[in-house]
Design a protein around this nucleic acid. Structure first.
Lengths: 131, 131
DNA sequence: GTAATTCCTACTAATTTAGTAGTAAAATAG
DNA sequence: CTATTTTACTACTAAATTAGTAGGAATTAC
């Protein structure tokens, strides 16, 4: 049971963006790629997932990049990880539409409880706390 | 981020063993395999991991199998899952000897906190509660 | 001694995660 | 207006992990 590098790199991206939040300019993936020595192509791919969450404004072309449009104090770590990992559920049965037998399953409450625990924890932390 | 079938099947095995705890006899994997429609060979493999935890007495040969030597009320779900999954750590950096830079890492406390949260939750539940 | 069982070693298949490649489209500086 | 920089899109490959299978040796009850 692991948080994938995708999730961890997503947080890395968000931390860079978070740190430049008050400066106002755009930060490009090229820049983050160089600072972190992570391939630009891989960051681009992670960004595709991350964009679902609608955290940023995008500017193409020279001096372009991304900037946060939400204050880091209002972005939870959970929302970042969920966007990046597509699936943050500990077992398939807890996702919506998951198990048709959940009301009759001896272990469903266990996995549901764990899943809630994880999500609550990650939602209790904000990006600001980890800049 | 998922609990693997290995972990879930390990719990399935332990639930069967837990339910027959007070009868005292041995329960074979063949029997569990038939009840649950899970391949015997796969259950055997999972049992190899599970045995590390020293939960049972083993009897080879006819009418043999496994029986718990620890009361289900004293077995935590965490101890089962950790035995089965080899690695219950959310990121590599939290395992012992993990990251050499942990004291200087901006996100180590996040992952460590999450990891502790998960383990504490699973250790707060006993097998008895899920028979 | 035979049937049922665990124990041991090795292998294969399937799935997921990680990472790369190439190009198109947009935006801007100059 | 054009060269450059950047995101956006599509498709692929490689590596690692997870899931599952196969065959037989050792042990035990009857």
């Amino acid at each position: 049971m692991k948080i994938s590098t995708k999730g961890r790199y997503a947080l890395t991206i968000m931390r860079h963006l978070g740190r430049s939040y008050h400066e106002g300019g755009y930060l490009s993936l090229t820049e983050i790629s160089e600072r972190e020595k992570i391939s630009l192509k891989y960051l681009e791919k992670i960004m595709i997932s991350l964009k679902k969450a609608d955290f940023f404004e995008v500017q193409k072309g020279k001096d372009g990049g991304y900037k946060l449009k939400v204050d880091p104090k209002d972005i939870t770590i959970g929302s970042i990880i969920r966007a990046a990992e597509e699936e943050l559920d500990i077992v398939d049965c807890v996702k919506s539409g998951g198990c048709p037998n959940k009301n009759n399953c001896g272990t469903y409450p266990l996995w549901k409880g764990l899943s809630d625990e994880i999500n609550d924890y990650l939602d209790s932390k904000t990006l600001k706390e980890y800049l």
